[in-house]
Amino acid sequence: MPAEEVGVILPQEEVEATPGVVESGREYELIIVGAGPSGLTAGVYAARKMLKTLLISEDVGGQILLTAEVENYLGFYYIEGVELVQKFEEQVRRHPIDIDLGQKVVKVEADPPKFRVLTESGKFFKSDTVIIATGKRSKQLNVPGEREFLGRGVSYCATCDAPLFRGKDVAVIGGGNSAFTAVNDLRNVGATKIHVVNILDSIQADPILIEKTRDPEKLELYLGHEVVEIGGMGNRVGSITIRDRKSRRTKILEVQGVFIEIGLVSNSELARGLVRMNRWGEIVADCYARTSVPGVFAAGDVTTVPEKQIIVAAGDGCKAALAAYEYLLHR
């Protein structure tokens, strides 16, 4: 009997950055930092305006890569995150812009009348305008044991690590869509018991996702509880201590894995000191994607835009590229 069909994911063609493809020191009219939905969309719009553009990023896709299923991006009633990214990238690569991947931008600074973009690898580029579209990354709990047991049972990537916890007891920290997506992943791989610990008294995940993960035998909910400590058993996670925020009573849960899904922080460090940010480190951008510094634009999740959605980020990228074009025309 033949084996069942195997699910494979084809990588994007020539997606990898070949070192030296984009030489350091080049000058552009526009540099887009980040290649999530906003950066990629900005790339397409900039190319259509024939701006001399560099798209520079560590990876392609950003947070969508960690999203198994996307069901709310128009045109696709269901698409895997990685496939959507591939479609985005395919479209960008039809246009003649420079793309430098595998490069972490560490600083964007003013170098009047231009801006300088510096990478961790020591490259630098100059540009008349910059779009910052660097998105967000997972937020940490900042409790004892979290850093110590990272990679030893503490995970911020349920998509990656859930398969390693088949037959094990785990905790998911958080109550939003990411947390319940992690619950779904862990259920699917056969985790034995899943403790969901949320600091709030309610669940914020979409009702459809809560319904999908409903499993009274496997799921144990601890609402209004906070994680106090992640404890070890040898060199790996063995337990977490949680505390009821009202009664202050603590409880120890024996778990081998802790999946932290408590939200995100902005990847805005590269622009610290350059543009205005709010108290959460989000770049303040207006409805034209303009920041506090003329010539610097920001788009997507790294900004103060109220809804962090793929479709919103893509729209933001469009606005930022068009605004950069207008700026170059009228400065």
């Binding site: 699910g7 990537c157 998509t159 990656c160 690590d161 398969p163």
Partner: peptide, 13 residues
């Protein structure tokens, strides 16, 4: 690696 890990092929490569 795991087959669901998007970062793993970068390291394998």
């Amino acid at each position: 690696v795991t087959p669901t890990c998007p970062y793993c092929p970068i390291v394998v490569k």
